[in-house]
């Protein structure tokens, strides 16, 4: 029996649950609600300046969150990779453990932490600061995204740093590189594939996120995901919400593909490190 037959269930899964829905989305995006005839009206409606401002907000919050994840995640991954494997295993377990719980519950936990009468404000109150308005701000949305997606940045970088042969570093040191040079000239370039897949794995869910902005942002900072949700659930099929929602989804998919294309371009010569 040929090996490739083993892939059949996965192939069927992909066709039914990934390819077919994408075709359906494209169909709705390019047809009218009333007659089902080809039209560009939905795309035009989706390019409305107000929707574009929502898209811009989504992109900028996703970029901020990704940068914060990278700045926080890289040193953590680096420290983990330098540790004794057993200690590192326990510590990385601590990062993965919260991911076993549903992200909505974890986000609810942040709501009570950030509240005006929440834990953080009460602690600040003890030293005479505040109460500050932490909840329902863009900052709270960024905190929620960073918290939820940080493990997706740490793990691929950690994976690649851990696999990096110690010999490379020793060779660099033998050749007279100081520790800064070892890092910038050897470790950083070699860990690039991990960084790139970390960026993708944080940026893509950030830009498509929707519940976090509603829970921590008090629905004030509508993100692109929220917009799509409103079109499908509130506006509904009868009033063309599915068509405009599908058009918005197409725009989002094109953007995600462009992001993947750009990162793949930088990632041409490497493999591994990716978790997806």
């Amino acid at each position: 029996m040929k090996r490739k037959y083993f892939a059949t269930p996965y192939l069927a899964w992909m066709i039914v649950l990934i390819v077919a829905p994408m075709i359906i989305i494209a169909y709705y995006a390019f047809t009218g609600q009333a007659d089902g005839a080809f039209t560009l009206d939905n795309i035009k409606a989706a390019l409305d300046p107000i929707y574009m401002s929502v898209l811009w907000r989504s992109i900028s919050l996703a970029v901020i969150s990704t940068v914060i994840c990278l700045v926080l995640g890289y040193p953590i991954a680096y420290i983990l990779s330098r540790m004794k494997p057993s200690t590192a295993a326990i510590l990385s377990m601590l990062f993965i453990l919260p991911m076993w719980m549903n992200f909505l519950l974890r986000t609810y936990a942040w709501m009570t932490l950030l509240d005006t009468n929440g834990l953080i404000n009460r602690l600040l109150g003890l030293v005479g600061i505040g109460p500050l308005r932490l909840m329902n701000t863009q900052g709270a949305v960024v905190v929620g995204m960073v918290y939820n997606y940080l493990p997706f940045m740490i793990l691929p970088i950690y994976n690649i740093l851990q696999k990096m042969p110690k010999a490379n570093i020793e060779a660099a040191q033998d050749l007279g590189a100081n520790s800064k040079q070892v890092f910038t000239r050897v470790v950083l370039p070699l860990s690039r594939p991990g960084v790139i897949s970390g960026i993708i794995m944080v940026f893509v869910p950030c830009i498509t996120t929707f519940a976090i902005s509603r829970l921590l942002g008090g629905s004030q900072f509508m993100l692109y995901g929220d917009l799509i949700e409103t079109q499908f659930l509130s506006v509904g099929q009868a009033y063309g919400g599915w068509n405009v929602g599908a058009a918005l989804s197409c725009i989002m998919m094109v953007l995600v593909f462009i992001c993947l294309g750009i990162t793949n371009h930088f990632d041409k010569d490497s493999s591994g490190g990716t978790l997806i």
Partner: peptide, 22 residues
Amino acid sequence: QKPLVQAYGTDDLRDRMIAGSG
């Protein structure tokens, strides 16, 4: 009115008000 609004909520508003957050 939007700049004056702390949040647009649903069932959670009840608990926010009980907690004295608004």
